[in-house]
């Protein structure tokens, strides 16, 4: 790997100061580094600088009533080990555990995954289904964007030069599920990932699908076909059919378009059933 300078700020101000220096194209920002490492190795034109966010005080996790805020550099392994996550937001717990291996999750972060914005991300679909909000800090100030507006295309986000993801907010705990299909179950890139969540306050479903180029998508048309927290089989079939037709799947080396359409129809029904059958977050039947 070619030589580069390595900057490791420990406060937000230091991090922003580091971002002010040098040209954006010459800088690579690293959280856990599990994905960036590939790029650093294979880049023909090496970066001049790598800014690591690991020493920032952003490895946080806090519940406030029904909402959850996750620091962008919190290791995924810490997130999945939170005693309440599995019970209150099961879909997020499942999605986090779908990422890589245990060893990888000790380094990988939610912010990094979002910042890299892969079409095959296992985390973006569930963040979409949970109406996640991205909290951004930058040289020009702070702002917040829904995940749906933050993620634009493969490796492309709304994050500007001089901006960093500080945390991700989940507005409310929801019955939810994330299901995926892979060639190699335990550790692979998902061919299709389906995230579903039911909002008890808005009384509506959110359905998001990954494994779609250029980015994971929400499926409002399919969502509207599901009436209550426990939709019947006919509604499920209709939503599955809608999703299968609607998602702009394509064929690549991981799966054919036809197989992805089959998968999304099956996984969507299973995910909604799984989410619907779970006790509600408050524990009430």
């Amino acid at each position: 790997m070619p030589a580069f300078s390595f900057v490791q700020p420990s406060t937000t101000d230091e991090a922003l100061a580091a971002l002010r220096q040098g040209e954006p194209g010459e800088t690579v920002i690293v959280a856990g580094g599990t994905d960036a490492l590939f790029e650093l190795e294979s880049r023909r034109i090496p970066p001049q600088r790598v800014i690591s966010l690991r020493h920032l005080p952003w490895r946080t996790l806090s519940w406030a009533g029904e909402s959850l805020r996750i620091g962008s550099t919190l290791p995924l392994r810490t997130l999945e080990s939170d005693p309440d996550l599995r019970r209150r937001i099961p879909g997020l717990w499942q999605a986090v555990r779908a990422v890589g291996s245990v060893a990888l999750r000790h380094r990988a972060t939610l912010g990094g995954n979002l910042g890299r914005s892969s079409p095959a991300s296992d985390l973006v679909p569930i963040l979409l289904a949970l109406d996640g909000e991205v909290d951004i800090v930058g040289i020009q100030g702070e702002r917040s964007l829904p995940v749906d507006q933050f993620v634009r295309a493969s490796r492309t986000t709304a994050l500007g030069p001089g901006e960093l993801i500080r945390s991700i907010a989940i507005p409310e705990a929801r019955p939810s599920a994330f299901l995926w299909q892979r060639v190699r179950p335990a550790n692979d890139i998902s061919q299709v990932g389906v995230a579903v969540a039911y909002s008890p306050t808005r009384k509506e479903w959110r359905i998001a699908v990954g494994g779609v180029v250029p980015r994971p998508v929400l499926l409002p048309q399919a969502e509207r076909l599901l009436s209550g927290p426990s939709p019947d089989a006919a509604e499920l079939r209709a939503a599955a059919q809608e999703a299968s037709m609607r998602v702009p799947f394509s064929t690549d080396r991981r799966a054919s378009e036809a197989y992805r359409r089959q998968l999304v129809a099956i996984l969507l029904q299973r995910a909604v059933r799984a989410a619907g059958s779970r006790p509600s977050p408050s524990g009430a039947p």
Binding site: S101, V183, R184, P185, A186, N187, R253
Partner: peptide
């Protein structure tokens, strides 16, 4: 060879 790497050439892991 279009999958010359351990990402897309999949050997089983202990999980399988």
């Amino acid at each position: 060879m279009s999958n010359a790497g351990l990402l897309d050439y999949r050997i089983p892991t202990l999980g399988e």
